[in-house]
């Protein structure tokens, strides 16, 4: 059964001065199956938030159909079964975290006896038990983000619609939220999340929809991405200067830091040659890792940016893979600048 369905959805906003309409969504067509985690990728202004607001009935679309749980978008019957985390959430200043969650429970018509337990559970789940009785006014961005996720979970929803769930979180917070979302996914929740953070998406999503300029460019099934060849970074130690020279002559970007060398290899076919060379020159191989993820390559290709072999085009990256390769990439870029 499909959880929601967007059928040929168009939406435009009027730009105030010119009175002209600016198209924001141009024929978006998307369906979400039960239990699935779908990530919605797109650069700033692509129309992710607009799509989400259309799903919630916060905006009316110009044309096309939006159905959630078989209801018209914004129908309370649909809203009762979902949880929504807005982008950069902000909640009532005058309430404490716990009071706010109780308000949400009331809006979901949870009986008092149940809501007290549920609110405690949710606070625990998002790690906010200790700060629950502070005014929301005093919360940091990351705390608000957690509260935001908490208020979306109060009704134990079947569908979670999350607009940039990792926004404003530090690495620890990001890890916690990722763990939490993984848990929810395992419980069988259906998740629709927008993001620009590819690494978070890679570890969670079953499918990825790529949006560009209000048009859906491609929907990628993450299972199809396994083993797709991409640029690699080779890290090794104790590589002699002659070997470094040879690699550079052959056109590889090499960065040296102490006795550590990082070599960017953009063609997978050349990998055996490079490894052979390192071995014969007496270098000690540390590891070979992807320079970019395959998703990133697809994403960049879809939005029309051709990745050069050694640049790091997405500034917001911080995956485990990415963090590990950051150093290499940085190093390679330095080398290129020196040249």
């Amino acid at each position: 059964m499909s959880i929601f369905r967007l059928h040929d959805v168009h939406k435009s906003y009027r730009s105030d001065f010119l009175r002209r309409r600016k198209p924001v969504l141009q024929g978006v067509q998307l369906e979400l199956a039960e239990g699935e985690t779908l990530a919605y990728l797109g650069h700033n202004g692509a129309g992710k938030t607009t799509t989400i607001k259309a799903l919630l009935g916060l905006i009316r679309v110009d044309s096309g159909r939006v159905e959630v749980f078989g209801h018209r978008a914004g129908d309370p019957a649909a809203l009762a079964r979902l949880g929504y985390l807005p982008e950069n959430p902000w909640f009532y200043d005058h309430l404490t975290g716990r009071e706010f969650l109780h308000l949400v429970a009331d809006l979901h018509r949870l009986p008092r006896s149940k809501s007290r337990r549920r609110v405690d559970e949710v606070l625990e789940l998002v790690g906010m038990t200790e700060n629950a009785d502070r005014r929301l006014r005093t919360f940091s961005k990351g705390m608000l983000q957690r509260m935001g996720l908490g208020q979306a979970l109060v009704n134990d929803p079947e569908l979670l619609i999350l607009d940039e769930p990792m926004g404003g979180l530090d690495p620890v917070g990001r890890h916690q939220i990722r763990t939490l979302l993984t848990g929810l996914k395992e419980q069988g929740k259906t998740i629709f999340m927008s993001s620009h953070i590819l690494s978070d998406v890679e570890s969670l999503a079953d499918r990825v929809a790529i949006l560009d300029g209000g048009r859906l460019k491609r929907v990628v099934d993450m299972r199809d991405l396994e083993g797709v060849g991409v640029a690699k970074a080779v890290r090794c130690r104790e590589l002699g200067p002659s070997a470094v020279d040879r690699l550079r002559r052959e056109g590889y970007a090499v960065q040296i830091r102490g006795d550590l060398a990082s070599i960017a290899v953009d063609d997978e076919g050349k990998l055996p040659d490079v490894l052979q060379l390192i071995h014969s020159e007496g270098g000690r191989l540390l590891r070979v890792e992807p320079l970019r993820s395959s998703l990133e390559e697809i994403f960049l290709a879809e939005i029309g940016i051709r990745p050069s072999p050694a640049t790091k085009p997405e500034p917001e990256h911080s995956s485990s893979i990415q963090e590990a390769t950051d150093e290499v990439v940085e190093a390679v870029r330095d080398v290129q600048e020196v040249r």
């Binding site: 916060l58 309370p76 809203l79 807005p86 959430p89 809006l107 979901h108």
Partner: peptide, 10 residues
């Protein structure tokens, strides 16, 4: 934007 949260409730 508190209204976004409120109106996303049933």
């Amino acid at each position: 934007r508190t209204i976004m949260t409120m109106l996303s409730k049933p």
